[in-house]
Computed example of a mutant assay.
Amino acid sequence: DLNKLMQNSGDEGVIVVALGSFITFLPSKTLDTILTTLARFPHEIIFSYSGSTPRHIGDNINIFQWFNQNDVLGELSHPKTRLFITHGGLSSYREAMYHGVPMVCMPLMIDQFDTAAKIVSNGVGTYVKMKSLNNENLYEAMVEVLSNKKYSDRANQLSAAVKDVRMNATETAVFWIEHVTKYGVSHLTVHRKHLSVIEYYLLDVIAVIVTIMCIAGWSLR
């Protein structure tokens, strides 16, 4: 059904909205702002949200409790997916970069603000602060990314760079299985496994520093 929805989205394509698996609830004002803004676009909207939603939403908005985000961004739809609205999670950012989908980020916490900065610096999208979110700044951000070809061109360029590897995932797995079967794993073991407790936690270094500080403090006193 999801595949059929995306393939029938016409020339306008699809806008994917996913704010992370941890976001199961949005304040009614914030949710209303997002939904009314999305309803202004001619694109089909695929929105991942498990919280309660208003009864009356735009005809173009399709809300799912969950979908395979990587498939929607990539193999299932590309190039039907025109824009990805994300909270800025690291996995979401990497999936969109891999599949060459431009983004509008709405960071909520911790490292998501750093991800928003990366999206801007890499030229693959823009961001809107959740605290100042309203219909106009979200609409303007979406129009900017959708209408300006530089974002999709840059996203496709970085996608091509990421995919340009000597071996795909299956070939890499086969290589390492054969390598370990042939040579064992002793040469791949990290050195820290052989460190003593004193070496691992730098207790000798800490002891020297504390001793120097104590002597300096005693001398000053």
Rank of each mutant, 00 (worst) to 15 (best):
V120Q: 09
N135R: 13
T30A: 04
L38I: 06
K193P: 00
N8R: 06
D111A: 03
I198T: 08
T126Y: 01
C105I: 13
T33W: 01
S52M: 03
S152D: 05
P107V: 06
N60L: 13
T181E: 12
S21F: 10
L19I: 14
I198G: 00
L158I: 15
H187A: 11
G217V: 05
R55H: 07
T181H: 08
L108R: 09
R55K: 10
E171P: 08
T189A: 13
K118W: 04
D71A: 13
L138Q: 08
I57V: 09
N148H: 13
Y139T: 05
N156V: 03
V185I: 15
M130F: 11
D59S: 14
G74Q: 03
K118I: 03
S50A: 15
G89V: 12
H191E: 15
Y201D: 08
F47H: 05
T86P: 02
R55Y: 05
F41P: 10
I110A: 10
D11W: 02
G88S: 10
V174C: 08
D11P: 05
I209P: 01
L31R: 09
H87I: 04
L19M: 14
V185E: 07
R154E: 12
H191T: 13
A169P: 04
S9P: 09
S28K: 09
T189Q: 15
N70S: 11
L83H: 06
S52Y: 07
A116Y: 00
V72F: 02
Y49G: 02
I63V: 15
A117K: 15
E171H: 12
L73A: 03
Y183D: 11
A117Q: 13
Q69Y: 00
V72R: 00
L83W: 07
T36A: 01
T81F: 03
L188C: 09
V104Q: 08
K80I: 12
S159N: 13
R221K: 12
V208T: 06
I46C: 07
L158G: 07
E140W: 06
E178Q: 14
P102L: 12
L133S: 06
H179W: 09
L35S: 07
F84Q: 05
S9H: 06
V72W: 02
I110P: 00
S48E: 14
K80F: 06
T33K: 06
A141K: 10
V180P: 04
T81L: 01
F25V: 10
I45K: 01
T53S: 08
E140G: 00
N135K: 13
V120P: 00
S219H: 11
E178A: 08
S91T: 14
D153E: 15
A161K: 14
V180N: 04
N8W: 03
V165E: 12
M167A: 11
T37G: 08
H87S: 11
I198V: 11
V145T: 08
A161I: 14
A39F: 01
T189N: 09
V16G: 03
I61R: 04
P102E: 11
G125C: 06
N148Y: 10
R55D: 15
L195A: 11
H87T: 04
